[in-house]
Design a protein around this nucleic acid. Structure first.
Lengths: 193, 193, 193, 193
DNA sequence: AATGAATGAGCGTTCATTCAT
DNA sequence: CATGAATGAACGCTCATTCAT
């Protein structure tokens, strides 16, 4: 019974995250994903339209889930600065807890194939929106500078975290990113004040 | 005709930047590069070991040149803060002046293929070193915070610029990044103080 | 509901004629036939051994029916010439009344797969026999030439009608083949006299 | 030197005629054609756009050649009836001399794939035109009936020959079609008078 | 009988690289 | 050095058929 349909979809998705994370989308073979998921090649096409659809679905599901939970994390917090800290923590936690997913995100957000990349990055926007709303709120409450360019602040916020995770991923996940949370927070807050 | 060999190497390299920038390394066909460089397919193999070598060589030559010139730009400047500003300007200038190269750098630094990526990113280290040395100097001269984590500061510095260029590249180079230089500089300086 | 089984066999067969007629045997997908017949894919295999068997069965049933009715049409006619005319009329009537079946017959009688083709064409022989018997009768009754080669006459008879229907099918069933009946009859009769 | 480019094109084309003639277009594997032509799979794609293009090229080249030669055969003949006879002879000669090509023509002119078929049959029109012009000439010279429907006459002419060749091909090329030339000619001429 | 999810063999095509000229 | 025809391994996807329910 554990081979239920629901299960198979999850199994394929998780296998795909592993394989794509390690080889990159293009070098990931459908056959490898199928093998790891313990299904036949053809079975994948009962759950996904094609190989691209697997990658797009990963981003859709995982980023939606990410944004949903990120919102939950900050919903009861009053202080926008504290919200930013939680967003930093959450970003780093999710990535370090899911290294395979982290690899996929780091690599494929810069997918060379333009249409595929645009399908993928679409799902990033709502995350950007969350960050920007918190920054906006900070400005309104007088905690962040009134002259702060929200777009630039978000680029700095995301760019910094993204680069940290990127380095972490590409150096074999050696460091513990949690050690940096306080310092990152302090630097970003100063930048935004 | 006496510059034919030199010429051909350059022509192939520049053609490769264009083609790889527009299609990504994997989708770029050797034949396309050869055509654009106006040489035969086989000729490319007189100048490069293989397709990977072309990409690696682009990074080697272009990043070495970048670092050399970046150093020249700041060598006569005393104020570390001013040096940072010049580095920001220079980063943005080079990228916006060479959109094809910018695309290659943005996309291929996150090359999925692990060994290829590591060959590519090796060339990034000396750029990182330049940034870190300026930050270090700023700390020593009391302009930047004594407690500043240089590694994190460099990640923030590069991460922010990289994300800005990335967005610029992926949105069809619509904005003028030069408009942001002052604000970026202010934010980074505050973060580092 | 009591005619469900009978019904299903018929439904599958008719769906198959439609789908095969429009796509050709090879491109016709079992799934498409099942969908059009409103049964599950697997159900088809309760009524037919495999995909080939569907095609063979179409020819068996439809050609048997054709020959049976063709015989009925001419059984009470005395004049062999008149019989030929009725056969022409009937051939054209059946084809134009059942364009999907016509397409299947036109195309699949020249099925490239040798064994499948031979199974299919076996069912054609009794039609050929009907034609040849009428021609033979015409010779015996002195209406057709005593020197007429019956085999060749039948080839001409069938070949002409087959080519006409073929053109009709391949040109989107534009013309009205009934307009040609008298002329065809006159030409064939002159040829056979 | 016999492996010249010209040679390879011919070799592939002839191999394709053999393989497609025996298996049908769809079941013919590109690999089989390559093997028979003694080239690598990929080499085929230096001479043809794709598999379809091979079939279309066969028809284009062979039918053009056929029509050209058929015209040559009749150009110096005055009597339209005699021309018809030569056309019959030539049709049967070409087919019986090239059984593999004959198979391809017989089978693939009724290609189920609509667009492919239309590309193929386009090449048939100029043959039809030759036949129709001779029939027209026969009418004008008073040798054939003034009331003869040229379209129908051509359908009968081609349909008869096509059916004869079809039967010949599908029965393992047992008979000698040359034996029938005089009788066919007599019957067709009577039909057209 | 009916279902439809699962299977996996099979194939057209691409393209980096080679090498005879 | 330069050429470009030739090579052939590699892979995403399809679909007839099976079989547990």
């Amino acid at each position: 019974m554990e081979n239920s349909k629901e299960n198979k979809f999850e199994r394929i998705l998780n296998a795909a995250i592993k394989v794509i994370g390690n080889k990159g989308f293009h070098s990931a073979k459908v056959k490898d994903i199928a093998e790891l998921a313990d299904v036949a090649d053809g079975t994948i096409y009962n759950y996904f339209q094609n190989k691209e659809d697997i990658l797009v679905t990963i981003f859709k599901i995982k980023l939606e889930e990410y944004v949903l939970n990120a919102k939950r994390e900050i919903i009861n917090i009053k202080d926008p600065a504290e919200k930013l800290k939680v967003l930093i923590k959450y970003h780093i936690k999710i990535m370090t807890d899911n290294p395979d997913l982290a690899k996929v995100l780091q690599i494929e957000l810069r997918q060379p194939h333009i249409e595929l990349r645009s399908k993928i990055r679409k799902n990033l926007r709502s995350y950007f929106k969350v960050i920007e709303e918190v920054i906006e709120e900070g400005k309104e409450k007088g905690i962040l500078s009134k002259n702060l360019n929200v777009y630039l602040a978000r680029e700095m916020f995301f760019g910094t975290l993204d680069e940290l995770v990127s380095t972490w991923v590409f150096t074999g996940m050696a460091r513990d990113l949690n050690d940096y949370i306080d310092e990152i927070y302090d630097m970003l807050l100063k930048a935004f004040k």
